[in-house]
Write a protein that binds this DNA or RNA. Sequence first.
DNA 1: GCCTCACAGATTGTCGACAATCTTGTTGTG
DNA 2: CACAACAAGATTGTCGACAATCTGTGAGGC
Lengths: 230, 230
Amino acid sequence: MVVVESVEPEAADSGQSLAERLFVTLRGEIVDGSIPAGSKISEPELARRFNASRGSLREAVMRLESLGLLERRVNVGARVVDLSERGLLELYDVREALEGMACRLAATEHRGEDLLELRRMLAHHEQQEALQAGTAYYQPEGDFDFHFRIVQASNNDLLIDTLCNRLYYRVRMYRYQLGMFSPRAKSAFREHSNIIDAIEAGDGELAEILMRRHIRASRLNIEKKLTTER
Amino acid sequence: MVVVESVEPEAADSGQSLAERLFVTLRGEIVDGSIPAGSKISEPELARRFNASRGSLREAVMRLESLGLLERRVNVGARVVDLSERGLLELYDVREALEGMACRLAATEHRGEDLLELRRMLAHHEQQEALQAGTAYYQPEGDFDFHFRIVQASNNDLLIDTLCNRLYYRVRMYRYQLGMFSPRAKSAFREHSNIIDAIEAGDGELAEILMRRHIRASRLNIEKKLTTER
DNA sequence: GCCTCACAGATTGTCGACAATCTTGTTGTG
DNA sequence: CACAACAAGATTGTCGACAATCTGTGAGGC
């Protein structure tokens, strides 16, 4: 069954052009698994589905490719990347490096509004933790917001773009589809708190070290899970 | 005067499709400044120049955008990014983080062939240094090759892609057009040598520290130049 | 029985044309 | 004289069609 649907309006205002709306919509479906990892992308089929021309859809596909969510081979077509254990671990190493640097920069940039925002967010998370008694309080998006904000506070546009507009979509993809949100609720919360303290104190070196440990701990946690599961 | 030229054959074999050849050609011209930084990209004009359709050229333009070499605004068009002091310094911070991690990983991966290659390259550079008596021996590409190889040795595909297929084109753009190759010939050479030693010894922590210092030293050198120049 | 080759079908790459939008120069008004 | 509205020109976004290429199926030969 083929249902013709127009691009979601929520995605609509985020971009003026049809191609960009298609891009946003498809990106969402790839991230949450509606379009399964490893599956083939058929340009004609998707064009019909969204009632758009193949050209516009092609533009969206190419943007997805440069995001690293699709792999394209000439004269063959595009496939959604598949999720591998190796890919997930690689992602952690890159994040450790970049988010560590983001913390260092955020500490020296030291912009008041960002810090305030981080504190508010953490307080909000703490409330939720109290409510849900630490079982798995960290709804993935909460943790996500924290890291997102830290990066924004770095005030390095290249770093922000690399993490927020590229790598984080891949992170979300792994989280949604492999469900690897850590049950390290309490410790993660304390680590977040310590990181903010360091940033607030202007201690870039410490902030970087703490963030790197934080991410590495997540990575080790995942590694452990992966090895016990088999 | 408008000269119709076909895409360079050297770029031709690197990609099968016309759009990809256009992409490679344009990327080269943007990096070396043949297409000046900050200038506007006219799709019809370039399409005529390469005797291609606007569609194919558009695809190339979009790839350049996602490389960060062009900025596009809807219904307005694309411009080559302009080179700013801030952008250059941002690049150094990101490189410090990523190449530091690359060194750490290269040390633990420890693949024989990569190390051998690095040693050979360094020996080659040493020869050239002896010849040119350290005045500015490091032809930029020599230094470039070194960093490039290190990253390859990390064996982290995401890291390799981010640095070699994205950031390094921006690095080259700054080098070609601002001519900021460091005259830190001798010290840079020794630093490279020490980094390889650490990698060879399997000491990832040390390798990372040394690489980060190496890049930070370059950054400071540039900063000094920039401040004395005005 | 297995491998090679050719053919049909579908998909991708490329092209030119039309509609929507922005930029620029001009005109008119306070 | 400055500023705002308007019109001409060009550029971008979108579309449908044609040609080149790949995938998979089936026939034929060893």
